[in-house]
Design a protein around this nucleic acid. Structure first.
Lengths: 199, 199
DNA sequence: GTCTATACGGTGATAGAC
DNA sequence: GTCTATCACCGTATAGAC
């Protein structure tokens, strides 16, 4: 039974937590060490530098952030709206488990746009292609594909990005906001249907 | 003619630029000084500390970020959709001039949620009230007011927040993305109409 | 008001004993 | 592999001359 958590893994977990909370320049190696229950020297023993450690964390998180779109959209025997429902569900489920992921990824890339280069371009092209087929076949309205995708993804991500400011503006308790997030799937899909089909 | 820019103003301009690019912990007082064309000591002479300077910048930017909603929504002799159109136009126009504002505000508040406390709560309540009247009078569908507002604001902000990652995913040149942003108003309002009225 | 010089603390990183 | 001690540097902030 090798169920023991390795030091390396403890560091990665701690690093993820601290970097997601504080960002690269706000994070302190000391905090990560404390959280991992070891000392700073060990961080450098396992991962050479703060930069290397951050890069690993970022890449790992980036994988979570982008890819699962594909699985949802490529299922056969589904209407486009059903595919969207799957996509929204998958995305929101992941976000519930990683609520601070979006702002971490987006603010990191904002300050370091080259980091977006690891993204696979084919994915976007494939989505656009799928939508254009739906439009051509007359199963959805003639919407601008990019504008719609921006809206769809925004409907999933934005509630997590804007949580603190929205809670305050609309005077919602944490419990109420969680409820809002739990119900987000239904509304996002309903809105998508209104846009793509009209009801 | 007092058209000369004061040192204080030069510092504020420089500070805004650097803080918006780098965030609080990423920003360096040296950068701000360089950009303002003065030396570090002057920063502390005019503004006591980095914290104080940042707070001023943040408050100033926060004012831009939130309030102009009110003007758009309180105009008389307008349908609700027309009001939304005004709101979206005003918001997008401001964002075109301040494209890095959203990620700055949201990532700052993310790391320091108390900063959201400066927000005026009455504004949100007023919007909800207006929408509920529209619903009651049967002029728009029975949508969840909070869910809709999250979507509406997201449709405006998200394209600016997600620009680098979206450009990459959908392989859009800066010019193409600017075009997308320029056309955002039409699509956002059209989507809002689809949601609120059906077409 | 503006500058130079410097104090002071903290941070990433390394050396070296065990 | 893990620790303590330490280094070199950088960043904020201040002192003090002009």
């Amino acid at each position: 039974m090798e169920s023991e958590i390795t030091t390396e893994q403890k560091i990665m977990d701690a690093a993820e937590h601290v970097f997601l909370d504080e960002g690269f320049s706000g994070a302190r190696m000391q905090h990560i060490a404390d959280r991992a229950g070891i000392n700073k020297a060990m961080l450098h023993y396992y991962f050479r530098s703060k930069d290397k450690l951050f890069e690993l964390v970022f890449r790992h998180k980036m994988k979570q952030f982008v890819p699962q779109i594909e699985a949802a959209l490529n299922e056969a025997n589904m209407t486009f709206i059903e595919k969207i429902d799957r996509f929204v569900l998958a995305y929101l489920t992941m976000l519930q488990k990683n609520p601070r992921l979006p702002i971490f990824i987006l603010s990191t890339i904002h300050r370091n746009p080259e980091l977006a280069n690891s993204i696979d371009i084919k994915l976007g092209a494939e989505i656009i292609r799928l939508m254009e087929i739906e439009i051509k076949e007359g199963r959805i309205k003639k919407v601008d594909t990019h504008q719609f995708m921006l809206t769809l993804v925004g409907m999933c991500l934005f509630p997590f990005i804007a949580r603190p400011i929205f809670s305050k503006t609309f005077d919602l308790t944490p419990k109420q906001y969680d409820q809002l997030l739990a119900e987000r799937r239904v509304h996002a899909v309903q809105y998508a249907r209104a846009i793509l089909i009209g009801e």
